[in-house]
Design a protein around this nucleic acid. Sequence first.
DNA 1: AATGATGAGTGTATTTTTTACACTTTTTGT
DNA 2: ACAAAAAGTGTAAAAAATACACTCATCATT
Lengths: 230, 230
Amino acid sequence: MTQKAKEYYRDNPQFYVAVDCIIFAFENDELQVLLQQRNFEPFRGEKTLLGGFLQDEESLEEAAQRVLQFHTGLTNIYMEQVGTFSALDRDPGARVISTAYYALIDKNLYDSALLKEYDGEWVSTDHLPSIHFDHTKMIEQARELLRRKISFSPVGFNLLPPSFTLAQLQRLYEVILGQEIDKRNFRKRVSEMQFIEKTGEIDKVSSRRGASLFQFNMEKYNLIHEFKLK
Amino acid sequence: MTQKAKEYYRDNPQFYVAVDCIIFAFENDELQVLLQQRNFEPFRGEKTLLGGFLQDEESLEEAAQRVLQFHTGLTNIYMEQVGTFSALDRDPGARVISTAYYALIDKNLYDSALLKEYDGEWVSTDHLPSIHFDHTKMIEQARELLRRKISFSPVGFNLLPPSFTLAQLQRLYEVILGQEIDKRNFRKRVSEMQFIEKTGEIDKVSSRRGASLFQFNMEKYNLIHEFKLK
DNA sequence: AATGATGAGTGTATTTTTTACACTTTTTGT
DNA sequence: ACAAAAAGTGTAAAAAATACACTCATCATT
């Protein structure tokens, strides 16, 4: 590369680049998000999303997966980029450009022991506490993205255990969409999608009568690749 | 801020941060995008999107508007963030994190004299030439975002002059959605939205009989805030 | 001045999709 | 035995989307 070409880059400023993870889980008929109460500087005592700085040899996606793994123990998690936030004063400690990702996890699988190490806490997205930086906006944008996506893409299953009852699935949709759904209409739509299949097992925990357990069959979905549920 | 807090930032690497603008316009029944053939290093001779580096005292949005104004002369243009691209080798000259924005402009208004200064050229999004970096992916993602948005949000009007015929509007939708639309059904839907209103003027250019000109009334739309057109 | 060509403009019937709605079944705890 | 709790199931009505063909106004040509 010529000297001129090097200058092309060199004349420009550089920035700290971060990722912030909106880690969603579903429990108690709530869409929850994982926050941490910071016990370190800067901003000790503030609630924030889980984040980290981009390092030299990783992409933003990799950084987000790294942050996620560090705080939940989980790898290979469904993630989607929400957007990049760059207001001059968004982090009063320094100029930081941050890209938000949301992740959907099965709350049964994450490592809850880690939680204590970094003062993590799950909060309902319906009543968010006061959160530092622009992280509230990030969460709201992520929630809206998820709300739009869940009707046309089978991403919601990432929030459930591998097998689930139709009542669980329906409650998940009701919570994320923010509206009640007619049980019979919902089940009609589910039964039209052959890749949501009965496991044959019966869940006896949530009801006296027992409810059939279902699973999402990704292979079958990939053949059909049509999804509509709402 | 304490010493500890400063280290929190200082231990992390910094990066060049850029914006790339996907500038869309509508002409000749084509959705076009503005590229430049670079006559400077690095990557002289390559076709790329219009871009620029983020500077210290501006947000990404402001940087994108600056790039847009520099190349088209236009200010206050509709823009939307597409996403942030961070693959390690995306720019072989240096590690650069780039956020893509798409902009919708009325091709009658931009400053075509500027085009020659930087070897700009409009190309159809239907047959993109070979484009450097990951810019092809950016354009495709932007196009897809626009395709999804245009049915539920009145953004398409940004690509048209202030007054337009219904045939023009329909062709715009057909091109962006990539499918033919029934004329009577389309007009039925338009007539249901009172904020798309007749100006009273007649366009005599595009047909012998003359076609009524319409305009999008933003104030009326803001009261209703419901849009559906496909 | 007649006529042919061009795009503008207009309404209804059919199909598909979405929504509304209520009772029976199974099991457990009392 | 019976009360309580959630599972499971089908049809009719309403709403939305689609398919479809001719007349109108004007200009250019002859």
